[in-house]
Amino acid sequence: MRFDIEGFVTFDTEDASLVNIITGDCIELSQTSNRLLTELLYHRSDILSRGEIFQSVFDKYGARASNSNLNQYISTLRKNMSHLGIQKNIIITVPRIGFKIAEDAIITCDQEYSSFFTPIPIKQEKTEKLDSWLRPIPISATIITLLFLLLTVIIKCTNNNKEVGIKEFTKESCIIFIPSNLPFNDVMNNEQLGHLSLDKLDCSSKKKLYIYKKQRNSVLGTNIQIFITECDEEKNRCTSHYYREKKNA
């Protein structure tokens, strides 16, 4: 299962990882932290008592359960989220009871989406696509503004650890912002972007697009992530889209 936290951090329960899809920063969780965060997010409308957490996260898997141990895991998860750019306290302590997810936290999971994207078949031999979709992510205008103010200052280049900037160009009434190290042709002809690729984009009205793409190649395969925010100035509305594809070697 996959959760989106505050619109820009993803939590993959299978990979046991937290990823900032804007910067590409990734934190791998321990198995206990992974189970704890999964329980909290899955029951995000409820308060989980310490006893319930001890049973479902620790005892069931033969891990040592204690108040101090649980507090340490909660503290570590909070630090991880803060490190990835989440300023809000997502995990709330309920005194003498347990823990819960903050009511104002923006949390969605992949089961709540209906995708309008048709995955592109992979024709390479010995290649298995584990996860691929392009779907809207609910995200507030304030968060979008903060994210891309941050992007205009600095974007990490995960391939060479150098900082790169933002470049912009126009197409009719659209203004497109992309990382300076992302080739223009990758945006113009990228089939993975669907109707948001620049050769198919409707720019008859004023729009701003923010596009970030990361592709990581390794001996294990290829991991592609694309994050797009489309802001229609006439409708005063922004929509975010996320595409992810894994190709195993």
Rank of each mutant, 00 (worst) to 15 (best):
T127S: 03
T127W: 00
E128S: 07
K129D: 01
K129M: 07
K129W: 00
L130K: 14
L130E: 05
L130V: 10
D131N: 02
S132K: 07
W133R: 06
W133F: 08
W133E: 00
W133M: 01
W133D: 00
L134W: 07
R135H: 06
P136W: 00
P136I: 10
P136G: 05
P136H: 04
P136M: 03
P138N: 11
I139N: 01
I139E: 02
A141R: 11
T142L: 09
T142W: 04
I144L: 12
I144E: 07
T145V: 07
L146H: 13
L146R: 14
L146W: 10
L146D: 14
F148H: 14
L149N: 10
L149M: 04
L150C: 11
L150F: 11
L151D: 13
T152G: 14
T152F: 14
T152I: 12
T152V: 13
V153G: 01
V153D: 09
I154D: 09
I154Y: 13
I154S: 09
I154P: 00
K156I: 15
K156H: 14
K156R: 15
T158R: 15
N160F: 07
N161Y: 06
N161Q: 09
E163W: 11
E163M: 07
E163Y: 12
V164G: 02
V164N: 04
G165N: 03
I166G: 04
I166W: 10
I166L: 13
K167I: 15
K167A: 10
K167P: 02
K167G: 08
E168N: 06
E168P: 00
F169H: 05
F169W: 07
F169V: 09
F169N: 05
F169P: 02
F169T: 08
F169Q: 04
T170M: 11
K171I: 10
K171D: 02
S173N: 10
S173C: 00
S173R: 07
C174I: 00
I175H: 06
